[in-house]
Computed example of a mutant assay.
Amino acid sequence: MCYECNSHNDSRCADEMLPETLKRDCSDHSKGVQYTMCRKIVQNIDFEVNGNQPDSRVIRGCGFDESSYKGRCYQRSGFGGRQEVCSCLEDYCNGAPLGRVPSLLLGTAASVALARALY
């Protein structure tokens, strides 16, 4: 059970408090896919690329991923844009304002503190 939306099509998807109407049962549209988590993606296009104007959007939905990123966040960037992808394993967990970012920030802060202690 996840929130499913795209703020490009429905501005409510970027809200902190999501309406009940955006809740979905992932098994309703599985078509042979075993959805195992919820996902939230924040995409940013920082400058015009291939005719696409600067923009940002939030995409929430069902997902599957058996890699080491399951239940975590990661970032990607390139070609004038960047995105943060967070996945989580509880029902409707992709409704959180910043996904699992606090745990990502804690890990980064711990790494910086360790690096400073070693040098």
Rank of each mutant, 00 (worst) to 15 (best):
Phe79Met: 12
Cys38Tyr: 06
Asn6Trp: 07
Met37Gly: 03
Gly107Trp: 04
Gly32Ala: 02
Lys70Arg: 15
Lys40Pro: 00
Gly51Asp: 09
Asp15His: 12
Lys40Gln: 15
Glu48Trp: 11
His29Cys: 10
Ala14Asn: 08
Tyr92Cys: 10
Cys88Met: 02
Asp25Ala: 14
Ile41Phe: 00
Ala115Lys: 04
Pro102Tyr: 07
Cys26Ser: 02
Arg60Trp: 12
Leu106Asn: 11
Pro97Asn: 03
Thr108Met: 12
Cys2Met: 07
Leu118Thr: 12
Ser87His: 00
Pro97Cys: 02
Val42Arg: 01
Val42Tyr: 01
Gln83Thr: 05
Phe79Thr: 00
Pro97Gln: 05
Asn6Gln: 05
Tyr74Arg: 12
Gln53His: 14
Arg100His: 06
Ala14Lys: 09
Tyr119Cys: 06
Pro102Gln: 07
Ser56His: 14
Cys88His: 02
Leu98Met: 09
Ser67Val: 02
Asp10Ala: 09
Arg116Tyr: 11
Cys2Ser: 08
Cys93Val: 10
Gln83Arg: 14
Ala117His: 11
Cys88Pro: 03
Leu105Asp: 07
Asp65Pro: 09
Gly107Ile: 06
Gly78Ser: 09
Val49Cys: 05
Ser67Leu: 11
Ser27Met: 13
Arg60Asp: 13
Gly78Met: 11
Gln43Gly: 01
Tyr119Lys: 06
Arg100Ser: 07
Cys86Trp: 00
Leu18Met: 10
Val58Asp: 04
Asp65Tyr: 10
Arg57Ser: 14
Arg116Thr: 11
Gln34Met: 12
Arg76Met: 03
Gly95Pro: 10
Ser27Pro: 04
Tyr74His: 15
Gly51Gln: 06
Arg60Pro: 10
Glu4Thr: 14
Val101Pro: 01
Asp15Lys: 06
Val49Met: 15
Pro102Asn: 07
Ser103Leu: 11
Gly61Trp: 13
Ile45Thr: 04
Asn50Cys: 12
Asn9Asp: 13
Val101Trp: 08
